[in-house]
Design a binder for these strands. Structure first.
Length: 505
RNA sequence: CGGGGCGUGGCGCAGUCUGGUAGCGCACCUGCUUUGGGAGCAGGGAGUCGCAGGUUCAAAUCCUGCCGCCCCGACCA
């Protein structure tokens, strides 16, 4: 029996996945709980990751003609009432502002100055943006209208988890208006493709593009497309959604225009969003028992330099060599930006090395007198084990730098894809389906299940039955799945295609 | 809203049953020694023990009330 390897994170993923997740966030200093229920403080290392996600997405959005704008945090209550399904979907989780002043009363402050109409803190902005769109659109020449906003939203959830579901979270919400249904549908798909591109090529998270069932659809939408990813505990995570809203919101907000045929018509709108939940997805897709693993193309920093010296006279030479290397690295461009280099010269021994492993930086480079003598650097890769380090000639390291990062990026994507494939199955038999989703130990469920590709007749009842029987939900109907006739996993009636079922976050 | 658990230095906890006025580990600060690795020794700073009442000579500890948080469930575009 091999000696148990000491891991930087306790417990391990295998021992207790949810607790591991919390510990990783804490150890990597990405975020922490705040004094406010369900809200988090995003720390610099976590925020830098979010900024990179923002940067990459924002570029893609703009390439498709979208422009950024900003709308109010507060939404008049009656705005939300305009779209029936929408109200029903969000009413339960709205934070509401009812007063505009605090007054001294006894020992403390109490709200005073009741508002004539309460304001809802936006849970999403369809209604308030719709109001502006109604003013901005009067002719077919004003269309399409392509707007995005980077903002925070509040949804008063019962149970929260850092990054995955917080009462307040950061996101982007795109809102577009079009003259035709075809064009709006096309935009819905286009933005889903942007999300899939960012998820796979930057976050190295393999995703399945699909369509939500009627039950899982966005309140008020005609059609909801999504990307679904599998985490290492084999649960599904919805990583982004893109909605075709038909004319529902245009009618609610009165977004009308004069057509080129001199007629009058309601616009066709879309909305699409991704949030800081992507950060949680990244952690759960790539993290290991030593902490986070940041994919190089989105990492807050690509490399950390760790100068090593004993005597004061060695220090100046090592620091000079380090500074020069840092400068050379910062001239390299990677994933559309300059390489970000961290230099950590804290004199705290090996702890320093482990700090960066836990943070998941792709490359750690040790620079000591011996390396300098050989004009070499000692390189550790985060996708390999902590002690697996290689000496590289300085010039070779610099020349091969981006290729090395690409290799790590590819490895991470491949690992995640392999895991997903290993736990995805076509299932046609209900008892096999049940076994797939039933843990051996019900008291302390082990990691089990995955993505079951099974036939579904299309009825709400079957979907609800499976949900109540097994806590398994219909994640999506894959867009790229082949047509294939079969029998519904629940009722046995005929089905034309497979859906993906999984336990989900 | 139901079931369970927990509030003690920055973090994690012991002490509570059997009242006697606060302790451990990590982190932090100082010094010395170490040094290609999550260092060792010595010294040090830091806590109205969730809040409010009550019992008592004496309350982190017993009693009452309140507040907050976590886990499970319900819920989750």
């Amino acid at each position: 029996m091999a000696k148990a390897v000491k891991t930087a994170i306790t417990p391990t993923r295998q021992a207790d996945y949810p607790e591991w997740y919390q510990q990783v966030i804490s150890a990597s200093e990405m975020a922490e709980r705040s004094p406010v229920r369900g809200c988090m403080v995003i720390k610099p290392w976590g925020y830098a990751l979010w900024e990179n996600i923002q940067f990459q997405m924002d570029e893609r959005f703009k390439e498709t003609g979208v422009r950024n704008a900003y709308f109010p945090l507060f939404i008049p209550l009656h705005f939300l009432e305009k779209e029936a399904e929408h109200v029903e979907g969000f009413a339960k989780e709205c934070a509401v502002v009812t007063h505009h002043r605090l007054e001294q009363s006894g020992d403390g402050l109490v709200p005073g100055g009741e508002l004539t109409e309460p304001l809802v803190v936006r849970p999403t902005s369809e209604t308030i943006i719709g109001d502006s769109f109604a003013k901005w659109v009067s002719s077919y020449r004003d269309l399409p209208l392509l707007i995005n906003q980077w903002a925070n939203v509040v949804r008063w959830e019962m149970r929260t988890r850092l990054f995955l579901r917080t009462s307040e979270f950061l996101w982007q919400e795109g809102h577009t208006a079009h003259a035709t249904a075809e064009e709006a549908t096309e935009r819905t798909k286009m933005m889903l493709d942007v999300y899939a591109d960012i998820a796979e090529n930057y976050l190295a998270i393999p995703v399945i593009k699909g369509r939500k069932s009627a039950l899982e659809r966005f309140p008020g939408a005609v059609d909801t497309l999504c990307i679904e990813a599998m985490m290492q505990d084999r649960k599904a995570l919805q990583a982004g959604t893109s909605h075709f809203l038909g004319q529902n919101f245009a009618k609610a907000s009165n977004i009308k225009f004069q057509t080129d045929q001199e007629g009058e018509a309601f616009a066709w709108t879309t909305s699409w969003g991704t949030s800081t939940r992507l950060v949680g997805g990244l952690i759960m897709t790539h993290g290991d028992d030593d902490g986070v693993i940041m994919p190089p193309r989105i990492a807050p920093a690509q490399v950390v330099l760790l100068p090593i010296y004993r005597k004061p006279d060695e220090r100046s030479a090592v620091m000079a060599y380090t500074a020069k290397l840092a400068a050379d690295l910062r001239r390299i461009r990677y994933a559309g930006r300059r390489v970000t280099v961290e230099v950590d010269d804290r004199d705290i021994g090996g702890t320093r090395n482990w700090d960066w492993i836990k943070k998941g930086i792709p490359l750690r480079v040790e620079i000591g007198p011996r390396d300098i003598a050989a004009d070499a650097v000692f390189v550790g890769r985060r996708d390999k084990t902590p002690r697996d380090k290689t000496s590289l000639a300085r010039s070779a390291f610099l020349e091969g730098f981006t290729a090395l990062l690409d290799e790590i990026q590819a490895t991470l994507f491949q690992r995640a894809s392999d895991l997903r494939d290993a736990h995805s199955r076509q299932i046609d038999d209900r008892s096999e389906f049940d076994r797939f989703f039933t843990p051996r130990n019900p008291d302390k469920p082990e990691i089990h299940g995955g993505f079951a590709h099974a036939h579904w007749c299309g009825e709400d009842a079957c979907e609800e039955r499976i949900k109540s029987d097994l806590s398994v939900t219909l994640r999506c109907l894959p867009l790229e799945g082949p047509k294939e006739t079969g029998a519904c996993i629940c009722c046995g009636r005929s089905s034309e295609r497979r859906a993906i079922f999984a336990k989900a976050y």
